[in-house]
Design a protein around this nucleic acid. Sequence first.
DNA 1: TTGACCACGTA
DNA 2: CGTACGTGGTCAAC
Length: 577
Amino acid sequence: MAGLAGDSGRSSAPSPSVVAVVANRRDGTTIRYAVRSPRGAEVTSREGLVRLVRELEADLTPRWTWWTAAEIAPTLVTEGVVPQRSWDISEAHRILHGGWEAGPGVAWAASHGIPIAGVPAPPSGDLFEFASSTPDDGRLVRPDGHLRPDAVTGDWLDADERLLLWAEALAEVAERQLMEARALGPRVEATIHSESAAAVLCVELAQHGLPLDRVIAEELIVAAAGPRPETVEDELAARRIRDAVVLRHVPGRESTDLRNPAQVKGLLAAVGVDVPDTRKWTLETHRHTHPVIDALLIWRKDERIATTYGHRWLALHVGADDRLRGGWTACDGAGGRMTAENGLHNLPAALRPAVAAHPGHLFVRADLGQIEPRVLAVVSGDAAFAEATRADDLYAPVAARLGVERAVAKIAVLAAMYGQRSGAAGEALKGLERAYPVAMAHLDDAYAVGVRGGDLRTFGGRLIPTGRFLRGEPIGANPALDAARGRFARNAVIQGAAAELFKAWAATVRAAVAPLGAEIVLCLHDELLVHAPEGVATEVAALVDQSLTDAARRWARGAPVRFVADTSIIKRWSEAK
DNA sequence: TTGACCACGTA
DNA sequence: CGTACGTGGTCAAC
């Protein structure tokens, strides 16, 4: 179940099998862990923790509670003992209170109802530190109710008794968060369980990496950027060669810096092309008016690979084991989608052939079909729109109902969800209002809340920070800003809920396929890539589909909405779609 | 060195 | 056409 809704019973007090675990580094090398479990409280070593996790997981399947998975889980992933259920205080805080800053001091304050603005800054170590430092009276909590900042940084936790106090504070915050979650509604506790599992998954993704075919990767990079430069001179020479292909179309202006948009704009003006900016989308319409434009657009593609996904990128982020690694976060600062670094979320399609299963393995790739309109059907509770989700292609029944072409219906639905301002969706939008008034009203309500800068929560209970666009300006002072906030809000309730379903699915898949030796290696908003031993790939694919049925049923809580996955078994990522 | 802006890749 | 993200380039201010 991977810490999902399956165990979200209504036990009144925190389960006795909650285990609080905190870490602290002593002497710069030794790491100590304080653990509060049904066996009692103890301070132990790394080996002791690993042993404890192994034993308790077998006996109790407890919910491991930590400030953040990033602090404890890397060790457990390395040792191959990964808890099934966890409560991640930082992720819970982000869901309950919004924003992204979620350290112990902030989570403690928020769960105690103390203004976050008063959370003391960490000790800076400068000369004035002495005067303003918190006196050491042996207490973890200051008279003003905040945690000692030198406990948050770990400096104060030198003695075992203090580390146990730290674990006690952790358990208290988790307990308060649980009460907050239950008070907010029926889904929030399950969302936190799922989000905590996603945070552990992020630790695994960062550690395992994405399998790559290095030979193919190098070929593709060489084709775009030239051979791997040995020296700075080599690199500059390769650059000049790439530039010359474009500049030969404009004799007399060979000194133009193609990386400087202002100079490119001047260059285009000189050949008679007058554009407001030099974006690809703008230049696309002028593609055949002058050969330099086509050359420039091709140059941009190659330049992207040369600078961002080139030889340096390969050397820096792809390990000797041919795996691409980057940091992962379980949620962004807006709707709550996962984020990834080092190209894991924005690898150009041209490089996808390089993403390949390693010898003896296959990829099981699956993506959710039309997830956003299906999610809208759940979160709005629109019975008519839910009916449309019974079709494999949701836009077909919508088109039939509106009496328009499928393409028109699709544009209208997307326009309604994303707040399109231009285009030809007008008539079909009116049809949507008549056919699916509940779903459309849900979107309009979110828009209105955004415009007035109000609070919003996703279906799963995540607080949406619509105020992030305020920028100090009062509401109503800037109509464009008000509208931008409205569009953000309208989108966030859909994108955020979709992220919640996706993470519930991912966590379920992770737990289901692990016994077969398969592991998730990429999460891409609505797409999963699982690396599986080839003998079990078919079985893994079936588990991926079954996990969607299970996760969607729990997540949607009985809403008659169907979710579909397109699942395939492939050797290279480029074979799909 | 830092931050703003541009540009562009992914969903 | 909307939203979200991460990265790298240039340029201006510090």
